[in-house]
Design a protein around this nucleic acid. Structure first.
Length: 309
DNA sequence: CCTATTTGACCCGG
DNA sequence: CCGGGTCAAATAGG
């Protein structure tokens, strides 16, 4: 990114940040909208990150998704196992992380997200291998964020961390954080939200698909199946693209019912539970469904038998 | 048992 | 062909 564009960008982000703060103050006084507050928190965090990235002199490069799609009428998307074209269109930035010399805490400190290692490679000319991580919530929330971590050659206390793709997931820490702020009264006005006594998490993205995990407190497998579904009518490429890139990050609408304790372990629990009925969870294919959605217009959807193999 | 990590194989773009 | 990135089976660890 040229330095000429840097200043306006910083100004813009700063302004947006201030506006978000103002909005937050208003929300504090009004009502039980923890959901809105949660959103604002995310917005702020997003701005903070962007600014820190820019000021830190780290590289940041994101190709506008606008330029990637020329044929929005292109209909359905298919999950093909060997298609990774879209990776090129994902945001990518990197930063150096130094680990405290005193502490022997191996590896770069947590950046607030939970990652799962999926590979390690010896890199040509590098003394230390490069580790590959992806978001732990990839399977459950379709979060495509990944990062690479490589120890610096000269200074072994420095790690080069390269991020790819923004998080579209809801981290457990964010959930608990949002819950902490919830006032303890307000039983009255939530009547309509109380439909059953089970903790539920409803997540809704405003571009047409929804992800609605629903888990009972008991281990009974007869509870409602979690469901993730795209709209029944094919969604245009453009919309999907906006969904992913503007992202659940900023457009996700969260409804937290009372007594929420949902965590990823809960999610994994319900997703991995193999019902005795022999029926697999409908979420089994969800990873593929989102994971391999291809936004490149050159890619042609083809329905083959491998879709539901 | 389950989930996370390790690690060689595999894929793919340059 | 080579090397970076990913997959997935084996393994570790709770």
């Amino acid at each position: 990114m040229e330095t000429g564009k840097k200043r306006p960008l910083i100004n813009e982000l700063t302004q947006g940040k201030e506006l978000a703060y103002q909005l937050k103050n208003h929300l504090d006084k009004t009502m039980s909208a923890q959901t809105c507050e949660f959103l604002v928190e995310k917005i702020l965090s997003s701005y903070e990150k962007a600014l820190s990235m820019l000021n830190w002199g780290s590289t940041f490069d994101e190709i506008s998704p606008r330029t990637q799609v020329s044929d929005p009428a292109d209909s359905p998307h298919h999950c093909n196992k060997n298609v990774f074209k879209k990776r090129k269109t994902m945001a990518k930035w990197s930063e150096q992380v130094k680990v405290c010399s005193g502490s022997m805490v191996e590896g770069p400190l947590s950046d607030g997200y939970s990652w799962r290692k999926y590979g390690q490679k010896d890199i040509l000319g590098a003394n230390h291998p490069r580790a590959y991580y992806r978001c732990t919530h990839r399977n459950f929330q379709g979060c495509l964020a990944t990062k690479q971590v490589q120890r610096s050659d000269e200074d072994s206390s420095v790690f080069e961390v390269t991020y790819r793709g923004r998080h579209t997931c809801i981290q457990a820490t964010q959930l608990s954080k949002a819950l902490e702020k919830k006032p303890k009264k307000e039983e009255v006005e939530e009547e309509e939200a109380i439909q059953d006594s089970k903790p539920t998490l409803k997540m809704h993205c405003d571009h047409g698909f929804s992800f609605k995990p629903n888990k009972g407190t008991s281990t009974s497998e007869d509870g409602p199946f979690p469901s993730f579904s795209f709209p029944s009518t094919p969604i245009e490429t453009e919309k999907l693209e906006n969904l992913i890139y503007l992202g659940c990050d900023s457009t996700t609408f969260i409804t937290l019912d009372h007594n929420l304790q949902s965590s990823d372990s809960d999610l994994s629990e319900m997703m991995n539970s193999t019902p005795n009925s022999g029926e697999n969870s409908p979420l089994a294919d969800w990873d593929l469904s989102l994971d391999y959605v291809d936004f490149d217009s050159n890619f042609h959807f083809d329905i083959t038998s491998e879709m539901f193999s």
